[in-house]
Design a protein around this nucleic acid. Structure first.
Lengths: 238, 238
DNA sequence: CGCCTAGTTGAGGTAAGTCAATTCACGTGG
DNA sequence: CCACGTGAATTGACTTACCTCAACTAGGCG
């Protein structure tokens, strides 16, 4: 599905300004109501939930081209917090502008729905992993999926990618303890499958890893409407 | 947010026909591409994913008023299968009709996005539960959340509700073995918190259960646009 | 009556958690 | 330039939550 030039133009008008956030400082807080969403232009972030007992669960990671906080726009209440993992450059979108845009470009609504559907598919895959895969397969799967996503925005290949996550991030995302994450990574390394070291993920044997993880890519780029790509390629806004 | 009469009218035109499905037989299969979605009018269903090793993970349950297969409409590929848990009455929606509807009633797009956002919030809560809550709390939380959802469509109260799920369903939803589900239910019963027996969930001490589960309702009905309600209340279609 | 499905309970095993000690890389300030 | 603190990774020893296997009960139905 391709967006028309008119759609793209409408899309461009959405982005009123850009912002930057510094690594580590929270960006959106659980329960806060904001009327803006963002598109990530560069850097990594994660959205997570905190439990009363102090544990946290990372729901997903945002990399360049991803929407951020779109749901809190729709629900008028952010149900999760966001941590910028690296320094982050984003484009801002306002709620009212978004509604206007729907009126002008109905396909845009479809495109954004599509994007929401893709996000959903990823969270579902995540859920399946945590619920029904053992830790090492889960980790392998995660590293592959993240590689796939990064490839789509030219930030990774089948050889590997730069990954700013700590083992604590991995633990909170995969529902493990950081100690166990460490052991799992060691196992995968010793098996000659993947190496994660010094912020670099290296696929030592991509095909065997795919088999090991029972990884089935493809749910990420089905018939992509390129909404986020349109954003990520958008020229600087005055 | 309220839909206008015009919006409702457009919505009504979407529903061309009704269908029924019988309990136990699959309704949508993983990987199949269908161009219809449904709204549940009565009965329960669940959407799940099957893993190569034969395990399954239930992603969520659909009760009256819920959309079903909306995402597969957008992605043009259903990423999950659906099992009708009881006999199921649904209203059918076609893809092309949906796109037309967006053109005629922009608020509808917003409403459906809202609905997608709510679904997402539920899956996220589910994810958090599986990733970071221990089995008994997870179970308690699930029973409370399901009760909340049923209350919204007048199928449950703080006293309890009818629940057609087997312990196998619970196991596949919560990422547990059915044996452990049984033990957890026994514990909750013996603690005087909830009783699940003969297809009936009874809250023995609602307030203490809420505390036990660290349950925070409210993410379910924030500023509800009543899209599904409009559907579930819709009169019979000729 | 016998089969089948759902639920129940016990015994024993294992994946993953907790606690704790150690190393290493890095800033930062005396 | 070195002492110090801090955050990340690493590894070992021990514990535990949950799983698997297996046996048994109770209801529903052809």
């Amino acid at each position: 599905m391709e967006l028309s030039d008119a759609d793209r133009s409408t899309l461009g008008c959405l982005v009123k300004r850009r912002r930057t956030f510094v690594a580590g400082r929270d960006l959106v807080l659980q329960g806060r109501s904001d009327h803006v969403a963002y598109i990530v232009l560069s850097g990594w972030a994660c959205s997570y939930k905190l439990l009363p007992n102090g544990r946290r669960q990372i729901v997903d990671f945002q990399i360049p081209g991803d929407f951020l906080g779109l749901r809190s726009l729709m629900l008028h209440l952010s149900d999760q917090s966001v941590e910028p993992i690296t320094d982050l450059l984003v484009a801002e979108i306002r709620y009212t502008d978004l509604l206007d845009a729907f009126r002008q470009a109905p396909r845009l609504a479809t495109g954004i729905l599509w994007s929401a559907a893709r996000d959903h598919a990823m969270v579902v895959e995540h859920l399946v992993g945590i619920g029904r895969r053992e830790a090492n397969v889960r980790m392998a799967h995660f590293l592959l999926e993240t590689g796939d996503r990064l490839s789509l925005v030219k930030n990774g290949t089948k050889a590997g990618y730069a990954c700013p996550l700590t083992q604590y991030h991995l633990a909170d995302a995969l529902g493990l303890s950081s100690v166990h994450v460490n052991r799992v990574l060691r196992l995968l390394r010793e098996e000659g499958l993947v190496t994660f070291r010094d912020g670099l993920v290296t696929f030592d044997d991509y095909d065997r890893l795919v088999e090991y993880a029972e990884f089935e890519g493809g749910y990420l780029d089905q018939d992509r409407p390129h909404v986020e790509l349109a954003f990520s390629k958008w020229p600087a806004v005055s």
